[in-house]
Amino acid sequence: MPRIPVGPIWTGFIRSLFALGAVYLGLIVIGTLWDVIARAIPQLHAPVWLSTVIEFGLPSSAMLAAPWLVRTRGHVAMELINAALSARQRKALLAFTDLAAAGICLFVARYAGLAGLDSFERGEVAVRAVDVPRWYLYAILCSGLTLCAIEFLRHAVLAACSTAPEETTS
């Protein structure tokens, strides 16, 4: 049986989510231009859902980008005690913080999931320019954080398996 290259496929997936987030940023630019131009020209009208799509772009792009930023260590962290630690201690600390971050992501994702399910069952909507089911927002948060957790865990596991002092990806 041929081995499925899970690693590269997963990396490609996370990477394409990030790219999708960047594309969404581009769409926000185009949507805003469209909105303004349509308003300035009396014959044109921008669709009502446009402002809602733009607003959803902010949390969506953030959550699409977040897992890849975890992978590339793109989320900023303080480097206050690094100098005081040996390479070994630094590695151990990094593994510990990766695990802690993974745990907290899963934890909050779980409650976002629960709240989303509840909201779905109750049929709640967020009243915007067009009404949007409220569970969308929970779903975005829940999936983004879950993927972040997987990436933090991946860092921790790779660190445990490797003997190199620190993984460097960028």
């Binding site: 308003r39 009208h45 009502v48 402002s51 009243v127 915007r128 320019a129």
Partner: peptide, 19 residues
């Protein structure tokens, strides 16, 4: 300038909703 509450009313008046 509009928000959810006013949307349909402004539409009915023929005004343009600016969110």
């Amino acid at each position: 300038r509009s928000a959810g509450t006013y949307r349909d009313w402004f539409d009915a008046l023929g005004a343009e909703n600016v969110m």
